[in-house]
Amino acid sequence: MALRSIQTVQNTHLFLALFISSVLLLAVSANTRYLTPLEGAIRFLAQPIVYIAHVPAYAKDAAASYVVSRDELHDQNDQLLKDVSRLNATLVELAQARTTIAQLRDALGYVEENRRNQVLSEIVQVNPNRQRQEVIINVGAEQGVQVDSGVLDPWGVYGRTVEVFSDTSRVLLLNDERHATPILLNRTRQYFIASGNGSDEPLTLDNVNLSSDIRIGDTVVTSGLGGVFPEGLVVGVVETVTDVVAESIKHVSVSPSAHLKAKSYLHVIAPVEQP
């Protein structure tokens, strides 16, 4: 009986010690970045669990890419040939445009700053936490990716890198509640901030004056402010505009162009090292 009492007291002390340690860890990790090295070490140890958890998804992708009917392959091949032909024609036009731009730059004495390169990547992990819209991609510091590099998918702006490891990077998606993108309306060239609202929700424009000229269907592009994205990349299309007369503002929602729930190749905008 006495032995059991001693064990209970020891367990209570241990519980209290670990409980207080957890609270301290929580307070520090929620408010500072001092514990990032510890998180990195635990993440390294937990990597096998993450890889095993994603095996079914990899297997499904692999099966989908290997098991294709002959007709489907024919159709895909035809479509790809058409795409190549169309893109070749576009390339010729782009080459002409590039020459013209170079001549204009020479004439104006314009010096190009911040040349950027695009690194192709694939999604290797989706954050299971539904409150966070994040993915892990298979390129990192070794491929030239840096923190706050812009990420694009074939349809538009996808997000930005928030953490970069040697071979992988964590990408915060455009619709995450912690993500804000400096944008401008292509038609009126007005500047706004587009904020994410979580999964399946459109982006919203912050602090839009009641007198602002915004219409449904307006294209929203990056403004180039903030330095993450160059100017002119497609962010989305204005979906709804609602006047809130009492607050003298407009509620504007923007449907993202990027396919945020599709598994596709992503392009990371990485700065080019100057020779």
Binding site: S21, V23, L35, E39, I42, A46
Partner: peptide
């Protein structure tokens, strides 16, 4: 370990 796997602040799952 769960804190890291779920990408939540360190300490909450413990």
């Amino acid at each position: 370990i769960l804190d890291v796997l779920y990408d939540e602040p360190l300490g909450i799952n413990s």
